[in-house]
Design a protein around this nucleic acid. Sequence first.
RNA 1: GUCCCCAUCGUCUAGCCUGGUCCAGGACACCGGCCUUUCACGCCGGCGACAGGGGUUCAAAUCCCCUUGGGGACGCCA
Length: 490
Amino acid sequence: MLALLARKSRSRHKPLTIRNHSMDKIITRFPPSPTGALHIGGARTALFNWLYARRMGGAFVLRLEDTDKVRSTQESVDAIFQGLEWLGIDWDEGPFYQSKRTEIYQEYIQKLLDSGNAYYCTCSPETLDEKRKAAMARGDKPKYDGTCREKGLTNADNAVVRLKAPLTGKTVFEDKVKGTIAFDNQELDDLIIARSDGSPTYHLAVVVDDITMGINTIIRGDDHVSNTPRQVLLYNALDYPVPIFAHVPMVLGADKKRLSKRHGATSVIEYKHMGILPQAMINYLARLGWSHGDQEFFTVDELKDVFSLENIGKSAGVFDPARLLDLNADHIRAAADKDLAPIFIEQLAKLGIQAEDGEYLYQVMETLKPRAKTMVELAEKALFYYQDTIEYDPKAAQKCLIPEAIRPLEALIEKLDSVDVSDEKQVENAFVQVMESTGLKLGKIAQPVRVALTGQTASPGIFEIVQILGKAKVTARLRAAMDYIRTQNA
RNA sequence: GUCCCCAUCGUCUAGCCUGGUCCAGGACACCGGCCUUUCACGCCGGCGACAGGGGUUCAAAUCCCCUUGGGGACGCCA
């Protein structure tokens, strides 16, 4: 058997520990533990698994690792769903809950016991802890000393079950990202697979789940590489083929430390509230640790076509909000108005504006898209389109709403009277005529008008604003500005 | 402490496997300019990196070793 396996393996250029899955349909999974919101790192892991499954025509499984009863919460489960939904990451199977699969784990623990690959251990946590500390102090690796390994204990109260791991040799696995990784079995110890209350520990549950769910490709964070040999040992003990691993480097904060609250928003959903588009977040996350030549902008569909494990980088990456913002601006510009509309309306609502989907809204967005990095910003800059009375920015008013502005303002109102403002050319023409009649340069006329119409000195092009606002609102605002100037200088 | 992983501009990265075309390319950020009715967008330009040291070689960012630095794992957490 071994010889056969070895020969087969060699012909496929794979090490013995891996039985090849390449003929099978790719099945990936995302197994968050519901102890918090979906954070940046988790979202990227989910994304990579999802994209890879989609690219390979495989399946993507969602599994909640909620065996830690103390820390797992329903709120976290909901938050994870919410995050995935926002990103548009859907799954083909699941969600499975580990808390509902205890019988399956029992079955596999028993198998291990029956085959002599596991044994009961009655060492107390306190004793273990002391030994661990002593080993550390000695400069040794803190590992289980095997006290109960050969005792041949049958089930006893408060006994845990340990895997009987090999004492010598090496455990080797192929990592799609890092290459071949080897651990001396001496470095590993007899890990606990069942707690004294009979419940499975993480390693056992993960391996049993991945086996029973047919997972053959495991894409996960770098922090799991040292867990991998233990899990490989479990696959071996259970006599199941080892899946393909791809360990993706960590996402770090600007200080190169693991991303955490103090680096700002870590929950993916917070970025939704900040006005980030899901497609921008996906684009950013994909490019953080993965590349496709020099290409920076990707649509989700594009990623589903070109994403590959081969192009995942080996080193950790720093989360860069500025880059995300830039990509978001690109995606805002690239998005169709009808897709942006609901998000835009939602953001406007937060500012107290009830806006309707329709032509007016689209025109408004078109003028603002190149000027906004987030949807929040887009809404903020759109306020003047929807407000009845314009509140002037003090500096803007002081600079532009001055007595000298009265004449061009008045002239413009007059000119506009005979103009079809829905035609931008005619609007421009009106301004040109005012320039001629007043002898002022366009800048001298446009700025007061801009402040009159928007309250700000910075805005979209003045002609398009007039066109969109319409004659009635424009003249009303111009008049209001003249009144303002007069009262200020009375 | 022990083991594992990693190392190209401030940041994300291309290039590394299959040494020469790389006095290292792109993007973000930053700085300057152009366009211009403002602000953006856009365009042009600038700044800016192969961690250090040894090898191997006619030739090394690319291969090997060491050092340093960073990260991760060492739980009856996941």
